[in-house]
Nucleic acid binder design. Sequence first.
DNA 1: GAAAGCACTTGCCGGCCAGGAAAGTGGAGC
DNA 2: GCTCCACTTTCCTGGCCGGCAAGTGCTTTC
Lengths: 111, 111
Amino acid sequence: MTVEPRFDELIHAPTRLSIVSLLTATEWAEFKYLRDQVGLSDSALSKQLTTLEEAGYVDIRKAFIGKRARTSVRLSALGRQAFAGHVAALQEIVARSGLAVLPDPVQAFSD
Amino acid sequence: MTVEPRFDELIHAPTRLSIVSLLTATEWAEFKYLRDQVGLSDSALSKQLTTLEEAGYVDIRKAFIGKRARTSVRLSALGRQAFAGHVAALQEIVARSGLAVLPDPVQAFSD
DNA sequence: GAAAGCACTTGCCGGCCAGGAAAGTGGAGC
DNA sequence: GCTCCACTTTCCTGGCCGGCAAGTGCTTTC
């Protein structure tokens, strides 16, 4: 499966980039966990999640653990696709620059 | 030479990312050329270049071609380093996500 | 040699977005 | 009924970004 490169402004923004990349690594992630990982206030995270949800990039689940409400989030298929597309776009940019995108890059720089 | 990953907000912003990545591929680039490539107005580009220069990421040369002033820009050593560091930071983010950064990624996704 | 042109630069906006504080909401617990 | 919890929404502020328009310095043209 090939991912078509597509630079995604929504994902590119630093905070959302970190949220999304966190979500790629997990299944359902809890609100508080995310909040602490990205270092946002409740309100700020809530708004970012709403934005991502409106874009269809995340699924939000409100479950009751015991009797306490817990909100969890995961990337939707669309969200994963968008992230992969964005990464591909970044790779193109980097490739154009001549900087290798490999674990151990061969430096092409000299001055 | 290993590049230490360092997420660089200044470089991350989409317009500057495209400016910087263009510059990685060239030596001296001309003002008009950059302006057309990134699709900015003179003033917007001028301001971005000033920002990059103040950060020490670019060198700006005002030369006279014949008798006409021409401004050219190139990445400074610091700029290249910052770009490489930023790319490394992005790689870390991507690596954490389980998405391979290789030309033909092995998909780790399933639902 | 005054006026116009070129190649930017600077000043002055308006618009957008992001984040925090605080107030609001809805169920649980007492 | 009041409070707590777990968010959500509202309100506000501050920052950045881009375009337009005016300015600058030098050159060319009439």
